[in-house]
């Protein structure tokens, strides 16, 4: 009996192998999208392109960026998917990006793509700062729910905040970058100094503060909006607060990696990644996508999500990223979460 099953399995593998030999192509995709989003999108991709075998390397924005830069001499990835535009600009500077205009590019909002005619990166959606607040812990501690960045530096929150380290987390960086852009550099650093007094620790990933808020390890986590909604769905006592001043944001974007041999599958994947089919899936949990697919705004977001976004100068952010991070590290790194 066992032998029969084995024989069957073997022949199945063989047949599939032969079929795969005919068409299947391996595609290595680096991404900073959330772990719980990826399977939903990939399911669609596999349905639409069963002949392409996608391998995913997923990590925090900072780490994916680091990996890409580290491998600059000998790139491994074929495609970068859903990674902060500011990071892709860095990768572009390092000469790792091959410009590519995916099918359907004309639909993408100008603010969400690289300005070059053949863009070096193309955005898929925007993600923004949100505070995850644990209602049970807040009540237990008798704390008021903050509604703005300004509220967060109130001494009542001393030791009650956790935020991501901007050096490793995309969310961390866009938040710091937003603060500096909104308040101006001088006032911005002063604000961050004051905020630092209330922070119990800086985490390595952008989602961790929200997850820690969900499990009560901290009452308030500075994170991004999507995370708060998902943690709530999982049954954790979390609400998401959008700061009154507006949210820092960044575009999650795609790029083609410059390699000796660029696979067709890589271009197919990039075309798919901004196709209306997948855009609808993005829109289910993110209010701002590369182009409007007419989906309703996900529950819990402000009615006009785009108004919530601050004026963000990506060029400035990318150009000053290294300087900001160095300054930040020098000021606050003593409290950074170990990696």
């Amino acid at each position: 009996m066992k032998a029969m099953i084995r024989l069957f399995a073997l022949s199945l593998v063989l047949v599939m192998g032969l079929a795969a030999y005919a068409q299947a192509e391996d595609l290595l995709v680096y991404t900073a999208l959330e772990d719980d989003e990826i399977p939903i999108y990939l399911e669609l991709f596999n349905e639409m392109h069963p002949d392409i075998n996608v391998q995913i390397v997923r990590d925090s924005t900072g780490i994916i960026t680091a990996k890409i830069l580290a491998e600059a001499d000998n790139p491994q990835a074929d495609v970068i998917w859903g990674t902060a535009a500011t990071s892709l600009m860095l990768a572009d500077q390092a000469g790792i990006v091959e410009p590519y205009a995916p099918a359907g590019l004309d639909r993408v909002r100008p603010a969400m793509r690289d300005a070059n005619e053949v863009p070096h990166w193309v955005g898929i959606k925007a993600w923004m700062t949100g505070f995850c607040v644990n209602t049970i812990e807040m009540e237990a501690l008798g704390l008021p729910t903050p509604s703005s960045f300004a509220d967060l530096i109130d001494p009542v929150y001393k030791g009650q905040l956790i935020m991501p380290n901007p050096a490793s987390s995309g969310t961390g960086f866009l938040t710091v970058s937003a603060i500096l852009q909104m308040m101006g550099e001088e006032a911005g650093w002063e604000y961050l100094d004051a905020l630092h007094e209330n922070i119990s620790r800086y985490t390595h990933s952008g989602s961790k503060p929200c997850k820690l808020a969900g499990s009560g390890e901290t009452p308030i986590g500075i994170s991004f909006a999507y995370r708060g909604f998902i943690q709530r769905e999982k049954g954790e006592p979390v609400v998401t607060v959008f700061p009154e001043e507006g949210s820092g944001w960044d575009v999650e974007a795609n790029a083609l990696v410059k390699k000796a041999e660029i696979k067709d599958a890589a271009r197919i994947f990039l075309d798919w990644a901004i196709s209306p089919e997948v855009m609808e899936l993005y829109a289910r949990v993110y209010p701002v996508t590369a182009y409007d697919v007419g989906a309703p705004i996900p529950e819990g977001y402000p009615t006009d999500p785009e108004a919530q976004l601050i004026e963000n100068d990506f060029q400035w952010a990318a150009a000053n990223r290294a300087r900001i991070l160095e300054e930040w590290t020098n000021r606050y790194d003593g409290k950074s979460d170990p990696q």
Binding site: T65, A66, A70, A167, S168, H204
Partner: peptide
């Protein structure tokens, strides 16, 4: 030990 990781992975 954590600094090494942070320098390499977190800060490139």
């Amino acid at each position: 030990a954590t600094d090494i990781y942070k320098q390499v992975i977190g800060q490139q």
